[in-house]
């Protein structure tokens, strides 16, 4: 736990940025101006609205710009992961393909980094390009304390602090919801992608048949 917590200190943060190229200047300022005091407040049922940064380097308000009134599928990831994280990413790529034209129109996908200290917008952009991510799926980073608050608010945590400290384990669930109706659920990230689409369809009121029906039929 100690080692992991150090990642939140300013020194580690700066060191991290020494080796990773920074994205937008605004991103840098936002991160360095703030003391990392994550708001760990599970159970409030409310999503915070911090400024976060897209993989295109754009500053946006998390709830106002990305969530409000939308059907969303939110995952957490990190650019350097090699084990289960690419499996979830691979699944989400297939989800993106299955959603087709609905992506960016009816359904919005977000992947928030678990390691904002190193995952700058530029790193995330490279990561997204590597996976062939299309418009409508946005990768997000921000001040570590803001990301930590989001992680807790979205339910990517474990009650047990020791298990919770293993940040990589939070890359395996997908928070799915319809913000207009305040209806939220969660899907494991490693199920068949058809089932992830089906869970999205369950909360998307415009969809009648919940099961994913391939468009090729």
């Amino acid at each position: 736990m100690d080692t992991d917590d150090k990642m939140f200190t300013r020194r580690t943060l700066l060191a991290g940025f020494g080796v990773a190229a920074l994205g937008a200047l605004a991103f840098q300022r936002s991160m360095l101006d703030r003391e990392p005091v994550p708001q760990r407040a599970p159970g409030t049922g409310r999503l915070p609205n911090p400024t976060v940064f897209t993989h295109e380097g754009k500053a946006v308000k998390f709830y106002d710009d990305l969530i409000r009134d939308k059907v969303v599928a939110i995952s957490m990831t990190y650019a350097q992961c090699t084990a289960t994280c690419p499996a979830t990413m691979g699944n989400l790529i297939r989800v993106q393909d299955m959603l087709g034209e609905r992506i960016g129109r009816d359904v919005f996908m977000y992947s928030i980094t678990l390691f904002p200290e190193v995952d700058t917008p530029r790193v995330l952009k490279q990561y997204a390009e590597k996976f062939g991510v299309k418009p409508g799926w946005t990768f997000l980073t921000g001040a570590p304390s803001d990301i930590e608050s989001l992680r807790f608010a979205l339910g990517f945590y474990d009650l047990d602090p020791a298990v919770d400290a293993i940040r990589t384990q939070h890359a395996n669930m997908i928070r799915i919801g319809n913000a207009a109706y305040d209806r939220w659920t969660m899907s494991p990230g490693l199920v068949r992608p058809e089932l992830i689409v089906s869970t999205i369809n369950h909360v998307d009121r415009s969809v009648v048949h919940t099961a994913h029906i391939p468009a090729t039929a």
Binding site: T84, D160, P161
Partner: peptide, 21 residues
């Protein structure tokens, strides 16, 4: 979950140590 990252190997506490919400 831990095999691929630099995070320390931390074993789970028993129920009594769980973080109270």
């Amino acid at each position: 979950s831990v095999a691929t990252v630099a995070a320390p190997m931390i074993l789970a506490p028993r129920k009594s140590e769980a973080q109270a919400v």
